[in-house]
Design a protein around this nucleic acid. Sequence first.
DNA 1: TATAATTATTTACCTAGATAAATAATATTA
DNA 2: TAATATTATTTATCTAGGTAAATAATTATA
Lengths: 155, 155
Amino acid sequence: MDTSRLFHTLNQKVRLLTKELNEVLQPFQLFSSQWTILYILSEKGPMSQTEIWKYLEVEAPTTTRTLVRMEASGWIYRKPGRDKRERIVELTETAKEKYPSIKKTVENLEQRLVYQLSDQEQHQLQQLLEKLEENRKDSDSNDNQQATNMDEKFS
Amino acid sequence: MDTSRLFHTLNQKVRLLTKELNEVLQPFQLFSSQWTILYILSEKGPMSQTEIWKYLEVEAPTTTRTLVRMEASGWIYRKPGRDKRERIVELTETAKEKYPSIKKTVENLEQRLVYQLSDQEQHQLQQLLEKLEENRKDSDSNDNQQATNMDEKFS
DNA sequence: TATAATTATTTACCTAGATAAATAATATTA
DNA sequence: TAATATTATTTATCTAGGTAAATAATTATA
């Protein structure tokens, strides 16, 4: 199996998908990563910043910056949390109003992108992707030969 | 099928893979996108800049910048092409010397990442990924229903 | 052949990922 | 309680993707 081709394809696809997502979001003055945050806040309600970046599996500074932009453009606001450290992120009223139509647009795009995949194939793809890289942070890098069988670590 | 979850997973996986790639490349003072260029120049020989970005399916300015960095750090040099416009990119001697050991390192990483996938599953994943979004640039965006079957375009 | 269009590359400037380190607040512990 | 560690967020600074527009060279065309 040509593994490097597989990773090449993975990268290319994600780049193209992000590009198209940005295109359909442009009329709403939104960018892909901002959409992601809009989405989870809509689905899950207000969250602290830490909850957001942990959920999205990105780093904290990345999230901070995106939130600053979204606050400046009126999508979210940040109110004090339980601590003086914590900040809770909540959607503005206009964000909540705009959400349904944006969601429809994104769903349309996603349907177009998976157009050629049957429902079963989509499930397959999901599962195969989830099987990638689940052996995390063990013998800290460097020794490239992972001789140990780590099957028992995978759920 | 939860399509948004599928795209979420796709994005997360690619981010994690890139992160790990950067980690194993760090000892060589290389970054992921630089590795990609090093790889194709090693496999395919000298290429013009346009050939590079078309092959990688990224935009020209992205490639320009990465090449500038790689030239500064001694991985490549750029010599005149057939035109006074064109520039041909070629690996330096030190790059060629270092390549085999870097390649081994990356291959080890890739094997670790696909560890849980059988050969057949890797093929499946490759094919499913390729089925994503192959309906390109037709009736210029907006009308989301792509009725035409375009199977014959895929090799 | 002068003008217009195209091609190859670059520059300027966005968003978005990362790491390292700073700050401020809170929690732990000696 | 004072000192230390942890937590939440931010700031600074990288790489890497994108678009729009500039530049210079070449090709096509009126």
